[in-house]
Computed example of a mutant assay.
Amino acid sequence: MYFTFANNGEAFGEIGKTNYRWGLAFVEKLKAHSSDNLIINQRYFEDETHGTAAALSWYYGLKSLLKR
């Protein structure tokens, strides 16, 4: 699984910050139960928001997947 997070705090205020914290907590819970069949990567885009991170998310996610 490849998770990406954007800098939504500036664009969306407290709800953006809350969603980011929720996302990080979710990734950590998955990592606590990871296995050889579940590889988890994440990336934070400081200069992007929810609306601008999609293309970068696809690009880096596919690049990560295709390395294997």
Score class of each variant (00 low, 15 high):
residue 1 M to I: 09
residue 10 E to D: 11
residue 1 M to T: 10
residue 50 H to F: 08
residue 68 R to A: 11
residue 41 N to Q: 09
residue 46 E to P: 04
residue 29 K to I: 08
residue 31 K to A: 11
residue 46 E to W: 13
residue 16 G to H: 04
residue 39 I to P: 02
residue 31 K to Y: 06
residue 34 S to A: 13
residue 39 I to N: 05
residue 66 L to K: 03
residue 53 A to M: 13
residue 28 E to L: 12
residue 68 R to W: 05
residue 55 A to T: 00
residue 46 E to S: 10
residue 6 A to R: 00
residue 36 D to H: 09
residue 22 W to P: 02
residue 42 Q to D: 08
residue 6 A to P: 00
residue 3 F to K: 04
residue 29 K to G: 03
residue 46 E to D: 11
residue 11 A to D: 03
residue 60 Y to L: 02
residue 8 N to G: 02
residue 30 L to R: 12
residue 25 A to R: 13
residue 20 Y to Q: 11
residue 64 S to K: 15
residue 27 V to S: 07
residue 24 L to F: 07
residue 7 N to L: 10
residue 19 N to F: 15
residue 1 M to N: 08
residue 8 N to E: 00
residue 68 R to G: 05
residue 63 K to Y: 00
residue 15 I to C: 03
residue 61 G to V: 02
residue 41 N to H: 15
residue 55 A to N: 04
residue 26 F to A: 14
residue 21 R to K: 10
residue 49 T to P: 01
residue 14 E to I: 13
residue 67 K to C: 04
residue 40 I to P: 03
residue 46 E to N: 12
residue 24 L to P: 05
residue 40 I to H: 06
residue 37 N to G: 14
residue 19 N to V: 09
residue 39 I to R: 15
residue 2 Y to P: 13
residue 45 F to W: 06
residue 21 R to C: 02
residue 66 L to D: 00
residue 38 L to D: 01
residue 22 W to C: 05
residue 43 R to L: 13
residue 62 L to Y: 15
residue 63 K to W: 04
residue 30 L to P: 04
residue 22 W to Y: 13
residue 12 F to S: 13
residue 39 I to F: 07
residue 21 R to G: 05
residue 15 I to Q: 02
residue 49 T to Q: 09
residue 58 W to P: 02
residue 54 A to Q: 06
residue 48 E to C: 08
residue 58 W to R: 08
residue 31 K to C: 07
residue 65 L to C: 06
residue 47 D to L: 03
residue 25 A to C: 04
residue 48 E to S: 14
residue 12 F to Y: 14
residue 6 A to F: 01
residue 62 L to T: 05
residue 34 S to G: 09
residue 8 N to I: 04
residue 37 N to F: 15
residue 47 D to M: 08
residue 35 S to N: 11
residue 37 N to M: 08
residue 4 T to V: 06
residue 2 Y to T: 03
residue 53 A to G: 05
residue 2 Y to D: 00
residue 63 K to V: 00
residue 57 S to W: 14
residue 52 T to R: 03
residue 18 T to M: 12
residue 5 F to M: 09
residue 39 I to M: 12
residue 27 V to W: 03
residue 57 S to P: 07
residue 11 A to N: 04
residue 55 A to Q: 03
residue 60 Y to F: 15
residue 7 N to F: 11
residue 8 N to P: 01
residue 41 N to S: 15
residue 16 G to S: 01
residue 39 I to Y: 06
residue 62 L to I: 11
residue 39 I to T: 07
residue 27 V to C: 05
residue 13 G to T: 09
residue 6 A to Y: 04
residue 4 T to L: 11
residue 40 I to Y: 07
residue 36 D to R: 12
residue 63 K to M: 03
residue 46 E to Y: 15
residue 11 A to C: 11
residue 27 V to R: 14
residue 14 E to A: 15
residue 26 F to M: 12
residue 64 S to T: 15
residue 31 K to V: 12
